[in-house]
Amino acid sequence: MTLSTSLCETLGIDHPIVQAPIGSATRPELAAAVSNAGGLGTLAVTWRPPEKAAEFVERTRDLTEAPFGVNIVLDPDAKEVATEDHLDAVLGADVPIVSFSFGDATPYIDHVHDADAKALVTVGSAEEAERVADAGADAIVAQGWEAGGHVQSEVATLPLIPRVDDAVDVPVIAAGGIADGRGVAAVLAAGADGAWLGTRFVATEEAAVDSLYRERIVEADETDTLYSELFDVGWEGMPHRVIRNSTVEDWEKAGRPKSGERPGEGEVIAEYPGGYPIERYGDDLPMEGVEGDLEALALYAGQSSGLTDEIQPAGDVVTELVQETETRIEATASLIE
């Protein structure tokens, strides 16, 4: 038995496992490790200048001959670089796959296709999926409410996947709440053609994060996350899911006050190498090299953190996911006499 779906044929990958673009936690070493293991590695480039985005693509190309992708966030409140500039940079560096999220991707799909690349688009509803599929998207990422990081859906993953599957004729990738082969098998049974995992790949050796962040994911239970708009300095108004920490606890003890009245608001609690400050309630995660009160920063993670109990190389994660999924599918099939 070999785990392969229509998504694999569309993207040129061996297994329907996609590493989500986990913001600043991504780097070429992580994306390449996932792609070399047969999945699809992805780079987040939204918060990098175009020349750095192109450099990330080139560095990843040096580490793998397999397909990989980049993600571009479209919400103007989250970025300082025009989408067109990012697209020109990464397509000029010959990235084979571009995914879009948090905004209207329809104006950019033809641009991607003109460069002989594939376009993936993240959605939160069947209506949105149908619209971007009609615009030419090569695959749809249906993100459920359980997801970590910034979330663009109010629907849970399992109700969302069949709806999106019924609405489009292109491969569907399920995102949100998936961390092991049981979850992959479940979304495949629900109509998805692949699985998109973020939290699980933050807890890998290649992720560009401080060890405290990885350890908090491993220690967390499924009930230890908060869905809110709390960490809004840098990206106002976008809901997200994080692991509860001291910043969350102090805010809740204060009665969950609105922005402008929160405890410690405006306080600098950490800094990047070079001294660039990070405020409490900033949307910055504990990247490798950041110093300060790292535990109090945004610890983005989904409800699947309760299923993540080990820090591993990313390639091993892909291999285990495939094996677990195959085992679960075979076990389920055996229930039919």
Rank of each mutant, 00 (worst) to 15 (best):
L307K: 09
S99Q: 14
V164I: 07
E58D: 14
P277C: 12
T106N: 01
D193K: 12
D309Q: 08
V98A: 14
S334D: 15
A135H: 05
L43C: 05
A195K: 11
H15T: 12
D165N: 13
V242R: 01
A25N: 03
F201A: 14
A147R: 05
Q312R: 15
L188Y: 13
A129Q: 02
V112D: 03
K253C: 02
A207L: 06
S246W: 09
V141L: 13
D110Q: 15
S334N: 13
G234R: 07
W251D: 00
P96H: 13
K118Q: 10
R256W: 14
V322S: 08
A105T: 09
V202E: 06
T2P: 00
D250Q: 15
S228D: 15
T247W: 01
I72A: 05
S125W: 11
E267V: 13
A133M: 02
N71E: 14
N245E: 05
A135F: 04
D210S: 10
C8A: 07
P159W: 06
D293T: 03
A190C: 12
V18S: 01
V151C: 10
L40S: 09
V112L: 08
G266R: 11
E249F: 09
S246A: 15
I217N: 00
G260F: 08
E80F: 10
Q323L: 07
E58C: 14
L120H: 10
T46G: 02
L321N: 00
P50G: 15
H113E: 08
L87S: 09
G274M: 09
T308F: 00
G264Q: 10
K52E: 13
A195D: 01
Y213P: 00
L285N: 12
I278A: 03
D221L: 05
W235G: 00
E146S: 05
F102W: 14
E51W: 12
G274C: 06
V90T: 09
W196M: 03
T46R: 08
D165F: 00
E154N: 13
T46Q: 11
A89M: 11
T319P: 00
E310H: 14
V155C: 12
D138P: 00
G177A: 12
